[in-house]
Deep mutational scan, measured.
Amino acid sequence: DDWEIHFNNITIRLHGVSEEQIEELKELIKNGAHEEELRKWAEEVNR
C-alpha cells in the first residue's frame, strides 16, 4: 500500500509498505524517534 504520514512538519511517503510496518513506524514516532532513526527505518523498509 501507499502511505503518506505527516508529523513535525515532515512528510514521509511510503510505497508498498505493510500495515505491520506502519505500526512499527507509529511506535518509533510515539517513542520520540529522531529524524535519523526514521530515515534508517525507511531505508530498511525500502530494501
Rank of each mutant, 00 (worst) to 15 (best):
R39W: 10
G32V: 01
L14G: 02
H34N: 15
T11Q: 04
L25P: 00
E44T: 05
E23P: 01
W3V: 10
T11I: 15
W3H: 05
E37D: 13
E35T: 04
E43N: 04
A33P: 01
L28Q: 01
F7Q: 02
N31F: 04
H6W: 07
G16C: 15
L38G: 00
R13L: 14
I10P: 01
R13V: 13
E37H: 05
H15F: 13
E20A: 13
H6V: 11
H34C: 09
G16D: 10
E27W: 14
H15S: 11
E43T: 05
I29V: 07
L25Q: 00
D1F: 15
E44V: 03
W41H: 01
R13E: 09
E37L: 05
Q21C: 04
E19P: 13
E36D: 13
G32M: 02
R13C: 13
K40T: 06
W41I: 01
K26H: 09
T11A: 06
W3G: 02
Q21M: 09
E20P: 03
N8M: 13
E36P: 05
E43K: 04
I22P: 00
V45F: 13
E4K: 07
V45M: 06
S18V: 03
E19F: 13
K30S: 07
G32S: 02
G16F: 12
E20F: 08
K30M: 11
A33M: 10
I12T: 02
K30W: 07
E27Y: 10
A33L: 05
E35F: 10
Q21K: 12
N9C: 13
I10L: 12
N46T: 07
N46P: 03
E20I: 09
V45Y: 10
R47Y: 14
E4A: 09
I5L: 10
R39V: 14
I29D: 00
E4H: 14
E23F: 12
Q21A: 10
E20R: 12
L38N: 00
D2S: 12
T11Y: 08
E37V: 06
N31E: 05
G16V: 06
H34Y: 04
E24F: 08
F7M: 11
I12C: 04
E19V: 12
L28W: 02
W41M: 01
F7L: 09
I29Q: 01
R39K: 13
S18P: 03
H34K: 13
E37Q: 10
A42H: 06
N9V: 10
D1T: 14
S18F: 04
N9E: 10
K26T: 05
E36S: 11
R39Q: 14
R13G: 10
E36A: 09
W41Q: 00
K30E: 07
D2L: 13
E27G: 07
L14K: 01
S18K: 07
I22Y: 06
H6Y: 10
I22V: 08
W41C: 02
L28F: 02
D1R: 15
N9L: 12
I12A: 04
I22C: 08
L28H: 01
I22M: 10
I12S: 03
R13S: 13
I12L: 08
W3F: 10
A42G: 02
E23Q: 12
E20N: 09
I22K: 09
V17N: 01
D2H: 13
L38F: 06
H34S: 15
G16Q: 12
H34A: 13
I10E: 07
I29M: 08
E4L: 09
V45D: 02
N31A: 13
R39H: 07
V17P: 13
A33V: 08
D1I: 15
E19A: 12
E35D: 06
A33E: 03
G32E: 02
I12V: 05
N8P: 08
G16R: 08
K40L: 12
D2C: 15
E35P: 10
E37W: 02
I12H: 06
I29R: 01
I5W: 11
E19Q: 13
A42W: 15
N31D: 05
N46Q: 15
H34T: 15
I12Q: 06
D1M: 15
L28C: 01
W41E: 00
I5F: 14
N31R: 12
E19S: 12
N9T: 09
K30Y: 05
K26F: 14
E20Y: 07
W3Q: 04
A33I: 09
L14F: 07
H34P: 13
R47S: 15
N9K: 07
E24I: 09
N31V: 04
E20K: 11
E43I: 06
E35N: 04
A42V: 14
L25E: 00
L25M: 06
E35Y: 11
E19G: 09
D2G: 11
V17M: 07
N46M: 15
K26W: 14
E44M: 04
N46W: 13
G16E: 08
N31I: 06
E24T: 06
K30C: 15
V45K: 04
D1A: 15
S18E: 02
R47K: 15
I10S: 09
E37A: 09
D2K: 11
S18C: 04
R39G: 02
I22L: 13
